[in-house]
Simulated scan of single mutants.
Amino acid sequence: MLSDKILNNVSGAMLYGITPPKEKTAKEKLLTITEKRTNRINSLHCDALVVYDIQDESSRTNEARPFEYFPTLDPLSYTTTYHVTLDCQKIIYHVVGKYTEEELRHRIAECAAQNYLSVFVGAASNNQRTRIKLPDAYALWNAAPQKGGLGGVVIPERHRNTQDEHLRILEKQRQGCSFFISQCVCNIEIVKNFISDYCWEIEDRGEKNAYMIFTLSICGSTETLRLMNWLGIDIPKWLKNDLARSKDILDASIKLNLNIAKELYEYCREKHLACGFNVESISPKKEEIAATEILFYELKKHLAAVSIA
């Protein structure tokens, strides 16, 4: 299981990320969606399924959202109800500010009972109203009599701006996090800057490193490119140009993501930092979702080859 790779610092974990269907989805359609998802994800033989907890991020920026925001089903109840037959571990995101203390305690206990891992997510901005702050959520997790593994979110773009993301991660480790999942990575330089600062800080302090999981997102259209940009993902100008002007944007996205993953994996190996990858599509378009499978298989094949070499 993924938890074993995290515990033993074994690189090469492969995760697949999904968003729950919209709240208003009819039950008949919901059953069809989840059956197709279950079959597709089981065929990937991934180490874990990541199920996101979506929040409205409009308070984070003054720019208009490219697509309308729709609330989705709760990731915990959705996974427990509809993805029981998935043959992999599950990671449930929790936007902690949505919940009361009692609700979050229940979620922690439920994840422990189901052997799910959790990722706690803070507010999208300082202006967002919340019921629970992230430090209080960590305190609740630490006080829980039974709890599953806990992870956090790492944002390389924040490190570019503040130069202290590695210190934030170390503080989250002290509060219980054993692994971290990034938002989509496109600018490899800012990711490597974070990794370098983190690894040197770990060495200076004599502390143990956490397991890093880097998210790769398929971009199959200029509309998806705009959404990625709105979400705060740093996309270098050359990469935007190469995607927007390519004759086959899906093929270009697969190849660019593979190159990013290969370079990051080698850099982490040099730094003795255990890492894995999370493949997702932020678009619901069938062709972009199909491209995630190609990217997943190609990357999994590459990681298997380099682990043997």
Rank of each mutant, 00 (worst) to 15 (best):
175 Q>M: 14
207 E>V: 12
199 C>W: 01
228 M>N: 06
215 T>E: 12
243 L>Y: 11
222 T>M: 08
216 L>H: 08
159 H>T: 14
199 C>H: 08
188 I>S: 07
189 E>I: 01
215 T>F: 01
243 L>S: 10
197 D>N: 07
215 T>P: 04
234 D>W: 01
215 T>W: 06
192 K>P: 07
247 K>F: 12
214 F>K: 03
223 E>R: 09
168 R>L: 06
209 N>D: 08
234 D>G: 00
181 I>F: 05
157 E>H: 07
246 S>M: 10
222 T>V: 06
180 F>S: 04
205 R>S: 06
235 I>N: 08
175 Q>S: 09
247 K>T: 10
214 F>S: 05
158 R>T: 13
220 G>K: 09
248 D>K: 13
189 E>M: 03
245 R>P: 00
196 S>V: 01
156 P>L: 14
245 R>Q: 07
170 L>Q: 14
179 F>E: 13
172 K>H: 12
210 A>I: 04
176 G>I: 14
206 G>P: 06
173 Q>G: 11
247 K>L: 14
184 C>Q: 02
205 R>N: 12
182 S>K: 00
227 L>G: 05
216 L>Y: 07
166 H>K: 07
198 Y>G: 01
228 M>K: 06
169 I>V: 15
242 D>I: 03
187 N>C: 07
210 A>S: 11
197 D>P: 02
177 C>P: 04
183 Q>P: 01
240 K>W: 07
241 N>M: 00
158 R>E: 15
204 D>N: 12
161 N>P: 02
241 N>T: 09
181 I>D: 04
203 E>H: 11
236 P>N: 13
246 S>Y: 11
159 H>R: 15
200 W>F: 13
174 R>F: 06
204 D>G: 05
244 A>Y: 09
224 T>A: 11
196 S>W: 06
184 C>E: 03
171 E>S: 14
211 Y>Q: 02
194 F>N: 02
212 M>Q: 05
207 E>P: 00
168 R>S: 05
179 F>D: 11
219 C>M: 13
234 D>L: 01
212 M>E: 06
221 S>H: 13
236 P>W: 08
213 I>F: 04
236 P>G: 10
194 F>L: 11
235 I>Y: 00
231 L>C: 02
200 W>M: 09
220 G>Q: 09
175 Q>I: 02
222 T>N: 12
226 R>T: 08
175 Q>P: 04
200 W>Y: 14
160 R>V: 00
246 S>E: 07
169 I>A: 13
217 S>Q: 02
247 K>A: 13
204 D>R: 15
209 N>M: 09
179 F>A: 10
189 E>P: 01
208 K>H: 13
207 E>F: 11
